[in-house]
């Protein structure tokens, strides 16, 4: 179905650049869900603690801490 000449042109012989490409695409697209996830986990924890202790400051603190942790995770996974 595909012309032989075409399949040759589209080949990527270099596995190194292949892996780089994959890593880059994965990083670019998983950052938003990491950030959301960090805010949700620690914001949620803060909210629960707020309800339990009757305070109101732990939710925003949890959101910020979760965001920072998520950024660290993204940096550790893809940034180096």
């Amino acid at each position: 179905m595909v012309r032989p000449a075409m399949s040759k042109e589209g080949q990527r012989p270099d596995p190194e650049s292949d892996a780089d490409h994959r890593a880059f695409a994965n990083a670019a697209w998983s950052i938003p869900s990491y950030l959301l996830s960090g805010m949700a986990v620690y914001g949620g924890l803060g909210w629960l603690l707020d309800r339990w202790l009757g305070t109101s400051a732990l939710l925003p603190i949890g959101v910020v801490v979760g965001l920072a942790l998520a950024l660290y995770l993204v940096y550790h996974r893809y940034g180096r």
Binding site: S30, S33, L36, S37, G38, V41, G66, L69, A70, L73
Partner: peptide
């Protein structure tokens, strides 16, 4: 600290 973030991110938010 970090594993819950990974779990939520990969299993639910993705």
């Amino acid at each position: 600290i970090l594993s819950p973030i990974e779990l939520l991110s990969n299993i639910i938010l993705r």
